[in-house]
Simulated scan of single mutants.
Amino acid sequence: MLKIRDLNVHYGGIHALKGISIDVPENKIVTLIGANGAGKSTTLRSIIGLVKSSSGSIEYNGKEIANKRTKNIVSNGIVLVPEGRRVFPNLTVEENLTLGAYIRKDKKAIKEDMEWVYELFPRLKERLWQKAGTMSGGEQQMLAVARALMTKPKLLMMDEPSLGLAPLIVKDIFDIIKEIHRQGVTILLIEQNAKAALEVADYGYVLETGSIVLQGEGMELLSNDEVQKAYLGE
């Protein structure tokens, strides 16, 4: 589905991504783990067109999308849930979800997807008319994911979905990630909670200062001594 080959990104004089290559097969969960500043968010921002790559290739379903317009990339089925949630605080839950479907014209299907989202997130249905800015961090994260789903993504990219959330809420978020995947959405996940990410991932990549230093199946990386020492505190 998504193939990244030899991708390089520079910020001014900083070489943020150093020739990384990543595969995200259809119907899989792939995770990128690594410390702050490793290049994880830059990778997602490059895929969605928010950061220009210096060289390399990003192919989605056989078509080159590197440095294309973000709107066109989203229209093709790739959506990013950004770090820090970024909900519209002065709009209600329903208004945030409606904005998620802004590129769609199929009103009947939008209504059906709204009901699907409320089944996934019953808490949001209870808060239809609540302004997003008055919700808890966990509820805002659920809203950010639900809003992205309203775009009808084929590939859902998530940047630190558990950041700053209580452990119980983190469990809820990962349960929802597994359910979204079960319903046919491919997921590319960035997480500092390496244990939680690798437990749900089919495949994982470890990024360090812009380079991939390890890769393998999720459970394989979870039991890797280097990964345990560096990211799991063991």
Rank of each mutant, 00 (worst) to 15 (best):
residue 2 L to M: 11
residue 2 L to D: 03
residue 3 K to G: 09
residue 4 I to V: 14
residue 6 D to F: 05
residue 6 D to G: 08
residue 7 L to A: 09
residue 9 V to N: 00
residue 9 V to L: 04
residue 10 H to P: 02
residue 11 Y to P: 02
residue 11 Y to Q: 00
residue 12 G to R: 02
residue 15 H to C: 00
residue 17 L to F: 01
residue 19 G to P: 01
residue 21 S to A: 05
residue 23 D to M: 12
residue 25 P to G: 08
residue 26 E to V: 11
residue 29 I to A: 06
residue 30 V to I: 13
residue 32 L to I: 12
residue 33 I to E: 01
residue 33 I to T: 04
residue 33 I to H: 00
residue 35 A to H: 10
residue 38 A to R: 00
residue 45 R to Y: 02
residue 45 R to H: 02
residue 48 I to L: 07
residue 49 G to C: 02
residue 49 G to Y: 05
residue 50 L to Y: 09
residue 55 S to Y: 08
residue 58 I to S: 02
residue 59 E to D: 13
residue 60 Y to K: 09
residue 63 K to L: 11
residue 64 E to R: 11
residue 65 I to H: 01
residue 66 A to I: 10
residue 66 A to E: 00
residue 66 A to Q: 04
residue 67 N to G: 07
residue 70 T to G: 04
residue 70 T to N: 10
residue 72 N to A: 14
residue 77 G to P: 08
residue 77 G to E: 11
residue 78 I to K: 03
residue 81 V to D: 02
residue 84 G to F: 08
residue 84 G to C: 09
residue 84 G to D: 06
residue 84 G to M: 09
residue 91 L to S: 10
residue 92 T to G: 07
residue 92 T to C: 06
residue 94 E to G: 05
residue 94 E to D: 11
residue 97 L to F: 10
residue 99 L to P: 09
residue 100 G to M: 00
residue 104 R to W: 08
residue 105 K to N: 13
residue 107 K to M: 12
residue 108 K to S: 15
residue 111 K to E: 15
residue 112 E to S: 15
residue 114 M to R: 13
residue 116 W to M: 10
residue 120 L to E: 06
residue 121 F to D: 07
residue 121 F to V: 11
residue 123 R to Y: 07
residue 124 L to R: 08
residue 126 E to P: 01
residue 129 W to E: 14
residue 129 W to K: 15
residue 129 W to V: 05
residue 131 K to P: 00
residue 132 A to E: 05
residue 136 S to F: 11
residue 140 Q to A: 08
residue 141 Q to I: 09
residue 141 Q to S: 10
residue 141 Q to K: 08
residue 142 M to F: 08
residue 143 L to A: 03
residue 148 A to M: 05
residue 149 L to N: 07
residue 152 K to I: 04
residue 154 K to F: 03
residue 155 L to Y: 02
residue 156 L to E: 02
residue 158 M to D: 00
residue 159 D to Y: 03
residue 162 S to K: 04
residue 164 G to N: 11
residue 165 L to W: 09
residue 165 L to S: 07
residue 165 L to C: 09
residue 168 L to N: 14
residue 169 I to M: 11
residue 173 I to R: 07
residue 173 I to T: 09
residue 174 F to E: 00
residue 178 K to H: 01
residue 178 K to C: 06
residue 179 E to L: 15
residue 183 Q to F: 11
residue 185 V to Q: 02
residue 187 I to W: 01
residue 187 I to Y: 01
residue 188 L to T: 01
residue 191 E to P: 09
residue 192 Q to Y: 10
residue 194 A to V: 05
residue 195 K to T: 12
residue 196 A to S: 14
residue 199 E to Q: 15
residue 200 V to L: 14
residue 202 D to G: 10
residue 203 Y to R: 07
residue 204 G to M: 13
residue 204 G to I: 13
residue 207 L to R: 02
residue 208 E to S: 14
residue 209 T to K: 14
residue 209 T to C: 06
residue 210 G to F: 04
residue 211 S to P: 06
residue 213 V to F: 11
residue 213 V to P: 07
residue 214 L to C: 08
residue 214 L to I: 05
residue 216 G to H: 10
residue 217 E to F: 10
residue 221 L to G: 01
residue 225 D to T: 13
residue 225 D to R: 15
residue 226 E to N: 13
residue 226 E to D: 14
residue 227 V to Y: 06
residue 234 E to F: 14
